[in-house]
């Protein structure tokens, strides 16, 4: 019998926009992919046991869930917690992988995955920004980022400035660094994040949230400068490595 590929569930609905691209990135990394609507999952009451049994990974794609009203990702986070009852840290401790990209990351922050002294708000220039940035992984805690050096990825968001609560800033930061949670930083800092942060992982390194879009660079011709390097037009993009890392981890 053919060995089964790991399976990922990609969440959609309520203004999530990036489910197709995210699914495609996982497919290229040889995952079996299911795109599921939040409301269907709530209706089915897909609980933790079933979730752990069926899926090696959960992906929360980018988007504008609930129009970013009340803070980006906020209502999505409430819906996940109150209506679906998913406990992501437990899922990760039982071997699951989680990625939250942009709006998905914002929802993870609002759910408190990275602690209650972390939040995310408007870019410091107060505008939506669509541009390519260089980001560099820090440490080796995060399983999604293993073996990755500095890479180019696009950012496309209005609320991407990661903020560490001022009241306990030093201790929060020290703890997060000790646990390897501050796992992805911008070279330069277009959005004004504290500590140049572009992404965070939990203490297990299995839950990654990031503002740049790795699924936006799975093909060479997505890079803004590819026409200057025609030889690479047919090559995969560097964002794909994250999904390949997840595949290796899930096998």
């Amino acid at each position: 019998m053919k060995p089964q590929n790991p399976r990922v569930i990609v969440i959609t609905g309520d203004g999530i926009l990036g489910e197709q691209e995210t699914a495609q990135a996982f497919r290229l990394a040889k995952f079996d992919v299911e795109i599921r609507h939040l409301n269907d999952l709530i209706q089915e009451k897909l609980g933790m046991d079933e979730l752990c049994r069926r899926y090696s990974a959960i992906a929360f794609p980018g988007g504008f869930s609930f129009g970013d009203d009340l803070g980006a990702g906020k209502i999505l986070a409430l819906k996940l917690v109150y209506q679906l009852g998913w406990d992501l840290p437990t899922y990760a401790s039982r071997g699951g992988l989680v990625i939250g990209i942009a709006n998905g990351f914002q929802a993870l922050i609002r759910m408190g995955i990275f602690g209650k002294d972390i939040s995310i708000t408007n870019n410091s220039i107060g505008k939506f920004m669509a541009l390519w940035t260089k980001v560099t992984p820090v440490g080796n805690r995060c399983v999604w980022l293993r073996g990755i050096g500095t890479i180019d990825l696009p950012i496309r968001h209005a609320e991407g400035r990661i903020v560490i609560g001022a009241s306990r800033r030093a201790e929060t930061l020290a703890k997060m660094e000790r646990l390897g949670m501050t796992c992805l930083k911008y070279e330069g800092n277009p959005v004004g994040s504290d500590e140049n942060l572009a992404g965070l992982c939990d203490a297990t390194g299995r839950i990654l949230g990031l503002m740049p879009h790795p699924e936006g660079y799975v093909r060479g011709t997505a890079h803004p400068e590819w026409t200057a390097h025609r030889g690479r037009a047919g090559a995969p993009g560097m964002g794909l490595t994250l999904f390949e890392n997840a595949f290796r981890e899930a096998m």
Partner: peptide, 25 residues
């Protein structure tokens, strides 16, 4: 242009702007 998401859906090949190496300041 940069306030529009011109890369949504992950389909972008030629963008409204061409950009040189994003490493300089």
């Amino acid at each position: 242009i940069r306030q529009y998401d011109h890369e949504a859906q992950g389909t972008s090949v030629i963008k409204p702007l061409h950009t040189s190496a994003p490493e300089s300041a």
